[in-house]
Design a protein around this nucleic acid. Structure first.
Length: 490
RNA sequence: GCCCUCAUCGUCUAGUGGUCUAGGACACCAGGUUUUCAUCCUGGCGGCAGGGGUUCAAAUCCCCUUGAGGGUACCA
């Protein structure tokens, strides 16, 4: 087995995976791919209250959707399993025992209520809330007394007696120093028999031979505790890289606040964002290539990416820019693919049936080709394409009527129909030419040509280019609508 | 409160002591694409948080202030 770089993404299945998590996964993935290393997916489900299998499945599904394949771990297997923390409890217990035996940890019988009281007192005194080590030096009979009371203990890790400086050498931030004075004897095993995060993460990363830990900035303050644990076991300490956080528009940690703001990956997928667009966008939050490229393929990003180039400061999630980028990807993508992805939205809107004939498919292709230029994401396609599917409906009938009553309109419509009928080739360019000619040969202002025609055909005063609309509707439908408009005016 | 992190246009960012009257992108504004919205093209608006140092020279280094964020759990 080669001694390559080993990275991991260890989400906790306590909620749907969102933008922030996924960006962490992405950066781990990028760095693993860049270095031909191994990416491990581990599930941290030690919070029995909130962890569910459903959320775990969502994580896997969304990672696949974004194209972040995993080399080892959940869904893949590997020689360092199991990869679900709830299945590793025996391992954690074994290591906790070791600490207990070596006098580096101890049982604590304090109840949550007692702890809460301690914290409140500390707050009142203006001190940092630290565990007062009440159970650290318990005598045998005191221990027995607690046991008899039926108290279930937790296990705490002993902080060194002497003040000690802990230095993190962060790949992104450089040196970060902590004093053990601000740490307390933290819990490594909960009374429910599960290890705490700080304990399990160290055991797993060490046993799974993780060489680099790339995670969110919110973990910086956990790191000194973890380093102490590594040292207590004599494990080699991995390198750390703490990513800047992704903030919402109010500069607070990104999270779901209302139905309207999308933060979960699934929401973006359902709205019709393209995975490669989200991938590209996410790679650019907190990182950028040396040159001024923005639209980049996966391969380009991998080759340009370097963890040490990652920004230190947190970034606001800019949905406007994502929208622009996604729209660009939609316009540049293969049309057939955009069609396949768009059809479900059209079906859901009731615009297209379950069965699509070959003829309908060809027609749909034209419609989507036109509609895609106006959208940020695919679920907007039905609204954009609606005019091609439904009966004519006026957004403002009075306004349209006034427009049709104009004396020049009849001439315009008549000439247009005639020219269209005489067309040798009914295609966009030819149709466009007709309008050019129309403007030359008719004593009418351009506005008086385009507006009434648009209104007569679509009932709206904005939409795709007229030549596209006429091309898609076809001669018969165009004539019909023009005639109807004229009839209305009479 | 205490600990930690961060600080360039509204937003994402380039910038690692002189080439910076600070570059790009999104958004916004204007013009163009024989003229609708959009797309596309061109141009414009707009920023080094403040104060002290260090230096011939500072967006870049140091200190302070301020601001923002994270942590301070038998959550991860």
């Amino acid at each position: 087995m080669m001694e390559g770089m080993r990275l991991r993404f260890p989400p906790s299945p306590t909620g749907k995976i969102h933008i922030g998590n996924m960006r962490t996964a992405l950066f781990n993935w990028l760095w693993a791919r860049k270095n031909k290393g191994t990416l491990v997916l581990r599930i941290e489900d030690t919070d029995q209250e909130r962890s569910t299998k459903e959320f775990e499945d969502i994580i896997i599904q969304e990672m696949q959707w974004l194209g972040l394949d995993v080399d080892e771990g959940i869904g893949v297997g590997g020689e360092y399993g199991p990869y679900r923390q709830s299945e590793r409890v025996d391992i954690y217990r074994e290591y906790a025992e070791k600490l207990l035996e070596e006098g580096k940890a101890y049982y604590c019988y304090c109840t949550p209520e007692e702890l809460q009281a301690m914290r409140e007192e500390a707050a009142r005194k203006g001190e940092m809330p630290r565990y007062n080590q009440h159970c650290r030096h318990l005598k045998e009979e005191e221990l027995e007394a607690y046991k008899k009371e039926g108290r279930v203990p937790v296990i705490r890790f002993k902080m060194p007696d002497e003040e000690q400086e802990i230095i993190i050498n962060d790949l992104i931030r450089g040196e970060i120093k902590f004093s053990t004075d601000v740490l307390d004897d933290f819990i490594i095993f909960k009374s429910d028999g599960m290890p705490t995060y700080n304990f399990a993460v160290v055991i797993d990363d060490a046993l799974m031979k993780i060489s680099q830990v790339i995670r969110g900035e919110d973990h910086i303050s956990n790191t000194p505790k973890q380093i102490l644990l590594y040292e207590a076991f004599g494990f080699p300490v991995p390198e750390f890289a703490h990513l800047p956080l992704i903030l919402d528009e109010n500069r607070a940690k990104l999270k779901k606040r209302s139905d309207s703001d999308a933060v979960y990956i699934g929401e973006f997928r359902e709205k019709g964002y393209l995975p490669e667009a989200l991938f590209n966008f996410l790679s650019l939050v907190g990182w950028s290539p040396k040159d001024e490229r923005e639209i980049m393929s996966r391969e380009e990003i991998i080759s340009l990416f370097d963890i040490s180039d990652v920004n230190k400061s947190s970034a606001v999630f800019d949905i406007e820019k994502l929208n622009w980028m996604n729209g660009k990807y939609i316009r540049d993508a293969d049309l057939e693919r955009i069609m396949e992805l768009s059809i479900p939205y059209l079906q859901e809107a009731g615009l297209v049936g379950e069965e699509i004939s070959g003829e309908e498919y060809d027609w749909l292709k034209k419609v989507i080709e036109v509609a895609r230029t106006g959208v940020d994401y695919l679920s907007q396609i039905p609204a954009e394409a609606e005019i091609f599917f439904t009966e004519l409906e006026f957004a403002d009938k009075e306004k349209a009527l006034a427009e049709f009553k104009d004396e020049e309109v009849e001439l315009v419509f008549k000439t247009l129909k005639e020219d269209l009928r005489n067309l040798a080739e009914f295609d966009r360019d030819s149709i466009n030419n007709i309008f050019k000619e129309l403007r030359k040969k008719l004593p009418v202002k351009a506005k008086k040509i385009y507006r009434p025609v648009r209104l007569a055909l679509t009932g709206r005063d904005s939409g795709p280019e007229l030549s596209d609309i006429i091309y898609i509707f076809g001669l018969e439908e165009v004539e019909k609508r023009l005639d109807e408009a004229l009839a209305m005016a009479k």
